[in-house]
C-alpha cells in the first residue's frame, strides 16, 4: 500500500524514540513555506496585473491633440467615421486631471498645468492606422496616434520578467527546502545509526527503516508548512489594503480563485516534496551499508 508508512503502529513509532517537532526541520520548512508563499503571491499578482494591463491595452488607441480642445470635436468625428473603429470617446479634461492628481498630487489638478486633449478609441482587426492618422491630422494638425500596446510594452516586459524572477525564486526556495530535508534526514540517520544497525541485523528491510523516518519527516514537514502558510496568509491579508491601492493603479488586478488555489497547494506540495526527498535520502544512505 502506497501510504502504509503513514499508519505505523505505536511500537514502530517508539523505535526512533523521538517525538515529532523535535529539531530544526519544522522551523526550516515553516520559514521556507512562508517565503515561497509570499514570493508566489507576488508572482501571481504580477501575472494578474500583466494580464489586466495587456487586456486593457489590446486594440486600444488614443489620439493626442496638442492644442487642447480646439479641434477636439472635428477629430472625434474623423476618428468615429473611419472604417475599423469600434468605439470612440473623448477623455474629459477633469478625468485626466483626476488621474494626474493620483500621481502628481494637487499639482496635477492645477489649471496651470497644460494638458492635451485626448480621444480614446477601440479598433477592430484590419484598421489602417496610417490612414486614420492622416485623416485626423487633416482636421487637427499635430495630432498623434498612440497605440496603448506600444506604450505599455516596456511595462509588460518588466512585469513578465518579474513574474519569471518570482517563479525562479520559488524553485530556488523549494530546492533549498529539499536540501534542508536531505540534511535533516542524514542527521536523523546518524542519530539513530545504532537502532538501524540492530534493526538490519534482526532482518528489517530498508523500506521498514525508511518508513519510520519518512513518517516523522512528513509530520514535521506538514506541521511546519501549515504554520508557514498561516503566517504567510496573515501577512498577505495585512498587505491586502496596500495591494488594493496598487491594484487600483494597475486597473484593479487582484489574485483570482485559481491563484488562491495555487497558494493553498504550496504547503501540501512542500510536504509531499519533503517526504519524497526524505525517503530518497534515507534509502540512498541505507544502501551504503550491508
Amino acid at each position: 500500500m502506497m501510504f502504509r508508512w503513514l499508519f505505523t503502529s505505536p511500537s514502530e513509532r517508539r523505535l526512533l524514540g523521538a517525538r515529532p517537532l523535535q529539531g530544526p526541520t519544522p522551523w526550516v520548512i515553516a520559514i521556507m513555506t512562508f517565503s515561497i508563499m509570499i514570493v508566489a503571491a507576488a508572482g501571481l499578482a504580477l501575472a494578474e496585473t500583466a494580464g489586466v494591463v495587456a487586456a486593457g491595452a489590446e486594440a486600444r488607441y488614443s489620439v493626442q491633440i496638442p492644442d487642447g480642445e480646439r479641434n477636439l470635436d472635428a477629430a472625434v468625428r474623423a476618428v468615429g467615421s473611419a472604417p475599423g473603429v469600434a468605439k470612440v470617446e473623448p477623455v474629459p479634461e477633469r478625468e485626466m486631471r483626476r488621474i494626474l492628481e493620483r500621481w502628481l498630487g494637487p499639482a496635477g489638478a492645477s489649471a496651470d498645468l497644460p494638458i492635451p486633449a485626448l480621444i480614446s478609441f477601440e479598433a477592430r482587426p484590419g484598421l489602417d492606422l496610417a490612414a486614420l492618422e492622416r485623416r485626423v491630422q487633416a482636421v487637427a494638425p499635430g495630432a498623434r496616434l498612440i497605440a496603448h500596446g506600444d506604450t505599455l510594452a516596456p511595462l509588460l516586459r518588466s512585469l513578465r520578467a518579474l513574474q519569471w524572477l518570482a517563479f525562479g525564486l520559488v524553485v530556488l526556495l523549494a530546492s533549498a527546502c529539499a536540501a534542508a530535508v536531505v540534511l535533516a534526514a542524514r542527521g536523523a540517520l546518524d542519530t539513530h545509526r545504532f537502532t538501524i544497525d540492530v534493526m538490519h541485523g534482526i532482518g528489517a528491510t530498508d523500506l521498514q527503516v525508511t518508513h519510520l523516518f519518512q513518517r516523522k519527516i512528513a509530520i514535521d514537514a506538514l506541521i511546519g508548512s501549515l504554520a508557514g502558510a498561516v503566517a504567510a496568509a496573515l501577512v498577505l491579508l495585512a498587505l491586502a489594503a496596500g495591494a488594493a491601492f496598487a491594484g487600483d493603479l494597475m486597473g484593479g488586478a487582484t489574485l483570482g480563485g485559481l491563484d488562491l488555489a495555487v497558494l493553498l497547494l504550496i504547503p501540501l506540495a512542500l510536504t509531499a516534496l519533503a517526504t519524497w526527498v526524505a525517503r530518497a535520502a534515507v534509502l540512498a544512505a541505507l544502501r551504503t551499508a550491508l
Binding site: 524514540g17 534482526i202 532482518g203 528489517a204
Partner: peptide, 28 residues
C-alpha cells in the same frame, strides 16, 4: 543486499555487548 533480510530473520544473535536499543523497554 535486498535478499539478505529474510535470511537474517532466520538467525538469532546474542551479542557480547547485548546491542539492546536503549530507549526501548525490555518488552519492546
Amino acid at each position: 543486499r535486498d535478499s539478505l533480510p529474510p535470511f537474517r530473520r532466520r538467525i538469532g544473535v546474542v551479542f557480547q555487548d547485548f546491542r539492546l536499543i536503549r530507549h526501548l523497554s525490555a518488552f519492546d
